[in-house]
Amino acid sequence: MVDQSRSRLSHQELWLSWKEAGDPDARKSLIEHYLPLVEYVSSRMAATLPKNVTKDDLASHGVMGLIDAIEKFDYRRGLQFETYASWRIRGAIIDGLRQGDWVPRSVREKAKKMEDAYGVLEQQHLRSATDEEVCAYLNITEKEFQQMLQEVAVAAVCSLEDPIREEESETRLSLLIDDKALNPESKVHETFLKETLTQGIGRLTEKERTVVSLFYYEDLSLSEIAEVMSLSPSRISQLHSKAILRLRGALAKQKDHLLQNR
């Protein structure tokens, strides 16, 4: 428990005490103050994951992300800590899930097949591929397609958090975070990625764009989005999965293009 004199310190004073003087009590106060962020992020992520992944598991990883955020945050830049910490917490949770190998290899393989299908078809037609076209490309029935969507839904929540390239730690969503002093090569790479994402989002169906916007930009859970759109949670999950698979397919094609033109 934080003592009364410590609790009366402003956030700025706590950051100053921790960062400039290395006061461990100030660090503890900051961790305790921002713990609700861990609860918030872990609750949102738990709603999209299998039932065998508990919120407590997510929160334990998230706390490590919060501590890492407090260690690395530069309060002098004037950025909002809550935004920075939320990404760190989410990243720590996803790292923990990856280490636990919570997504079966067969599910990842199915997701990759669907991702490739969307990438090829939408490059050919320069528009959003229909379910029927994807089924024909994969040589599966519509029922099998719907089942695959349900299975890969558990992996889709982490898709945009995956590294842009396997040998790097930078993620697609990290492009939304303010970075300092990007070198020219990184700037060009970032521009290509943003253009590709913009084009990919433009090819999503209206419902898919709505789900992506509400989930990633309005911070609604899938169950909350289901209420807003008057659809079932399973239908929202499918729309989210298809949107992410389309975007991953577009990014994969862009990556191939960049490699070929090096």
Rank of each mutant, 00 (worst) to 15 (best):
V2L: 12
V2G: 02
S5N: 13
R6Y: 11
L9A: 11
Q12V: 08
E13A: 14
L14F: 06
G22Y: 09
P24V: 03
D25S: 10
L37A: 07
R44Y: 04
M45S: 00
A47S: 14
A47G: 04
K51H: 04
A59C: 09
H61M: 11
D68R: 11
E71Y: 07
E82N: 14
E82A: 12
I89W: 05
R90L: 07
G96P: 03
R98A: 13
D101H: 14
P104T: 05
S106E: 14
K110C: 03
M114K: 08
M114R: 09
E115M: 14
A117Y: 01
V120I: 15
L126N: 03
S128G: 15
A129S: 07
C135F: 04
C135N: 06
I140R: 04
I140K: 07
F145K: 01
A156L: 02
V157A: 09
S159N: 09
L160S: 01
R165E: 15
E167W: 05
E167Y: 07
E168D: 14
E168M: 09
L173D: 06
L175Y: 10
L176P: 03
I177K: 06
I177E: 10
A181T: 04
A181F: 10
E185A: 03
V188Y: 09
T191Y: 08
E195Y: 04
G200N: 01
I201H: 02
R203W: 10
L204A: 00
E208T: 00
R209S: 03
R209T: 01
Y216L: 08
L222F: 06
E227P: 00
V228W: 02
M229N: 05
S230G: 06
Q238N: 06
H240L: 10
L245N: 00
G249L: 05
A250I: 01
A252W: 08
K253L: 11
Q260D: 09
